[in-house]
Simulated scan of single mutants.
Amino acid sequence: MTLPDSLAYQLTSPFKPQHQAIFVTNYIQTTYKQRDANLANILLAIKTLVDGKTGNYLIFLPSYHYLLDVSQAFAMAYPHLKTVVQQAQMAEADRAAFLANFAPNPDSTLVGFALLGGIFAEGIDLKADRLIGVGVVSVGLPGINTETDLLRDYFDQQSHQGFAFAYQLPGLNNVFQAAGRLIRGSKDVGIILLMDQRFSSPRYTHLYPQHWQHFQRLYRPEQLTSAVHNFWHPEVS
């Protein structure tokens, strides 16, 4: 989506598409009114993701309040799994300690919870088996505020695409950045789990880069279980 006088240039991914599975849970809704009703499905989807293979995982959420709700509910539901949670305020030493949990060659599973668009969603390199799965809960729309609404109104006047430029694209860029933490080298392998049915709508899919075009829509929790298993164990699928 570009303005008529803008320049656009897109590079292809240097990594093999088959190294990265992209699953969209079409049965999960994370709009504000639907979050409580979908919490159980979100927790089960995260658990299904991490059950696929022992390793380190990062789950991103669009607000700190939502992050606390989901991470606390997950820890209560699955107390045997180790979790680490991004704090609202973290000094440099705290950030380093958070990332140090994502050690290579893990012998148990770690589930980290972090803020979409935050300090752990860009500029970090957890290569190889330091990270084998990323989950994103919701499409990450910015919160409604006067400044963003003014931006929306401006682009509505220019191109009738005010919502896309003011809300949708910034949120999706944050999703791309978070998902980009997964594949950092030619030998990295893992799963991206997008937990919101909006990710499978044309409004979003037509903006996906070429190496995301093999994404899979999943309509039931059992389909996610099979998809995760088949990715990690293709020889027995």
Rank of each mutant, 00 (worst) to 15 (best):
L151P: 00
L115C: 04
Y167R: 13
R198K: 15
V136R: 08
V136M: 14
D156W: 06
A114S: 10
I192T: 09
G171T: 10
P142H: 10
G135M: 09
I183D: 07
E147G: 08
V139D: 05
E122H: 08
G185Y: 14
T148M: 12
S138C: 03
K187N: 08
G118F: 06
G135C: 09
A164C: 00
S159A: 14
D107W: 02
P106M: 05
F165H: 08
L110W: 04
G185T: 15
F165V: 08
L182H: 05
A166T: 03
L193N: 08
L126I: 02
Y167I: 00
A166W: 02
P170K: 12
E92K: 01
L151M: 11
D129R: 14
Q157W: 02
I192C: 07
L115G: 02
D156E: 15
R184M: 02
R130V: 01
G112T: 08
K127D: 08
T109E: 06
K127C: 00
A91M: 12
F98Y: 15
G117P: 01
G135T: 07
T146H: 13
I192S: 00
L172F: 12
T146P: 00
A128D: 13
I119W: 01
F199V: 07
E122L: 07
G140Q: 09
S200I: 07
P104N: 10
V134M: 11
P106Y: 01
